[in-house]
Design a protein around this nucleic acid. Structure first.
Length: 365
DNA sequence: AACCGTCTCAACCGCCCGTGT
DNA sequence: CACACGGGCGGTTGAGACGGT
């Protein structure tokens, strides 16, 4: 992507920036350097400084809004790659670059499609703005966060949805069914998919979890013993949209827990759990894993909806493939969710090759 | 035009964590 | 191993824009 900034044309790649200086209808010169070097150059940052913006206070460094002159100065620094001090701390420069100056940023209001993506991913990840923003090219986490807080949140509330859990607010519930431990007020329907994909060489076997299952400690990575969820194509019949109050979510279900009772189990590592909101007319559908060679198909049986509340259509289907679960025996108290999983899944070659992006969205990821 | 409430969003805060020494 | 530094990120703030009265 190329963008004009005064007499400079900024060509931004993923990892580097090339800046062409334009003068008298000719490119007079060009500079190229890595983003890392831009950011880490520090713009006068001193190592002795305290971290964070406290440094700004202590060092009498300018704070607050960036003026156009400062923007120009920052850009000029980048173009010349010099060592001039901007009298801004590195953190502020970095933020300014990432959130505003970066040439690959998309401008303007969010599209409906983007909005839906945010809602869908938020349902799974919660307030993981950085993770959400990674799926919206040209959007920053800050932007997504602001958009959520200023628009989407209110929209959901006006629809009677809890913006945190994406479930009906209690004031909007017509019926109250048995409560669910793992998902708080989550009464909607579930589709559980477990798998035992062979251990890959990649230790970062993805772990998916829901916002309901958020754990403060998400640092532990899965071991080689832990199964990797397979990618399963959701049948269109369970795909829901914003027309519905409830939309699918994906969580991890503990394969060794008492899976017969979903409501008592804590989301764990070895299965995907789909919270679907099918129509109340029961139907069978088939899910086929996309894992090449595995190709197993599973019939999924949707339950009847007793009271015409779609959310009451609880479809609990488990596809337990006897994963090797040595590593998950301690998962009954599992809080070791790895949010990298979702990222891994979404960015996996699997997804990008076998499912187009709209399909992916249709899963309500 | 002035005032006021609400909204938007850029920037900051503060914590956590990875990395280097 | 301990410590310091700095990046990442979610939460919060506040200035300016906007709309209604």
């Amino acid at each position: 992507m190329i963008q004009q900034r005064g007499t400079h044309f900024v060509l931004c790649h993923l990892t580097k920036v090339t800046i062409y200086k334009w003068s008298a209808s000719k490119f007079k010169s060009w500079y190229q350097f890595t983003l890392e070097s831009i950011i880490s150059a520090g713009f006068g940052r001193e190592r002795e400084r305290e971290m964070g913006h406290r440094c700004c206070t202590k060092q009498k460094i300018k704070r607050g809004l960036w003026s156009p002159e400062e923007d120009e100065k920052l850009l000029r620094y980048i173009t010349t790659h010099g060592h001039k001090r901007l009298q801004r701390c590195g953190k502020s420069c970095r933020l300014r670059w990432i959130n505003y100056l970066r040439p690959d940023l998309k401008r303007g209001s969010f599209t409906l499609e983007e909005e839906q993506i945010i809602i869908d991913i938020h349902r799974i990840l919660g307030n993981r703005w950085a993770q959400i923003a990674k799926h919206l090219p040209g959007r920053t986490d800050n932007e997504v966060k602001n958009f959520w807080n200023s628009c989407i949140k209110k929209k959901l509330i006006s629809q009677g949805l809890d913006p945190q859990t994406h479930t009906l607010l209690s004031s909007h519930r017509r019926t109250t069914s048995s409560s669910s431990n793992f998902s708080n007020n989550n009464n909607d329907s579930f589709l559980i998919i477990t798998s035992n994909m062979p251990n890959s060489a990649n230790n970062n076997a993805p772990i998916i979890e829901t916002s309901q299952g958020l754990s403060s400690s998400s640092s532990s990575l899965p071991t080689n013993n832990q199964a990797q969820p397979s990618v399963v194509q959701a049948p269109s019949s369970i795909v829901t949209s914003s027309d519905f109050y409830y939309e699918p979510s994906i969580i991890i279900e503990n394969n060794n827990s008492t899976n017969s009772n979903v409501s008592n189990s804590i989301p764990s590592k070895n299965s995907l759990l789909w919270s679907s909101r099918t129509d109340h007319d029961a139907e069978d559908f088939r899910v086929q894993t996309l894992e090449e060679g595995q190709g197993m198909q599973h019939s999924l049986h949707a339950a009847d909806d007793d009271d015409n509340e779609i959310r009451e259509a609880n479809n609990i289907i488990e596809m337990n493939t006897n994963a090797s679960l040595e590593g998950s025996n301690n998962d009954n108290n599992n809080n070791n969710f790895d949010f990298g999983l979702l990222e891994s899944v979404l960015n996996s070659e699997f997804m990008s090759h076998d499912i187009n992006y709209m399909d992916e969205l249709a899963w309500n990821f």
